[in-house]
């Protein structure tokens, strides 16, 4: 019950889960944040930092540190830019895209023909729409993608935004979901 087994999964135990839950809104801003978490979770301070270190090594935590808010820092425009990249090239192009500093997500997803021909998804932030479009042209030029079909889906209204609920926190009959910050 402690292990989550699935093809892409790695072993995370309930203590890791509780730790991830405890830091979902960030470290407490106190001189010894890990000691405070440790007390809250009934672990040792060293155990908390060791688990966080291990979760990073295992790749469960992709990045541990400051998470900024783009919008508040002046990046008012964002678009999901979707690309129809030939299957044999998608790996290479995906890796190239993922390295540009203004690309903040880069995923391969399935096409759903005939309604949805795109297989590579990027998120691009800019101060305004023009800057986002400039970045898109930069990607096309830098990666030699002339002739590739893409579409730019600017975001308009935000109806909901919060950390993900995975509903894996249920324990002792507690149906409460756990939230994680995935960006």
């Amino acid at each position: 019950m402690d292990m989550i087994n699935h093809e892409q999964r790695v072993d995370i135990d309930v203590h890791d889960m509780r730790l991830l839950e405890a830091i979902q809104d960030g470290l407490p801003l106190v001189p010894r944040p890990y000691a405070e978490l440790a007390q809250q979770l009934g672990m040792g301070e060293r155990e908390v930092t060791a688990r966080l270190s291990l979760l990073q090594m295992k790749g469960v935590i992709k990045r541990f540190g400051v998470v900024v808010r783009h919008h508040e820092l002046g990046y008012r425009a964002n678009a999901m830019v979707v690309w129809d990249i030939p299957d044999q090239q998608v790996e290479t192009i995906g890796a190239l895209f993922g390295a540009f500093p203004f690309v903040t997500l880069c995923y391969r997803r399935p096409r759903r023909l005939p309604v949805w021909p795109y297989n590579l998804f990027t998120m691009i932030h800019g101060r305004d729409r023009d800057e986002v479009l400039l970045r898109v042209r930069e990607l096309v030029a830098a990666c030699g993608l002339d002739g590739v079909t893409y579409d730019v889906l600017f975001s308009r209204r935000r109806f909901k935004q919060r950390g993900a609920h995975y509903g894996i926190g249920a324990r002792d009959g507690d149906p409460r979901s756990q939230r994680f910050g995935i960006s």
Partner: peptide, 25 residues
Amino acid sequence: KRLGALSRVGAVLRPNRVGASTLAA
């Protein structure tokens, strides 16, 4: 944090290592 520039000092998780999700439209 109060200003809104900082979301949190914390973890960004790799998608789909914990639980399952999809993008829907």
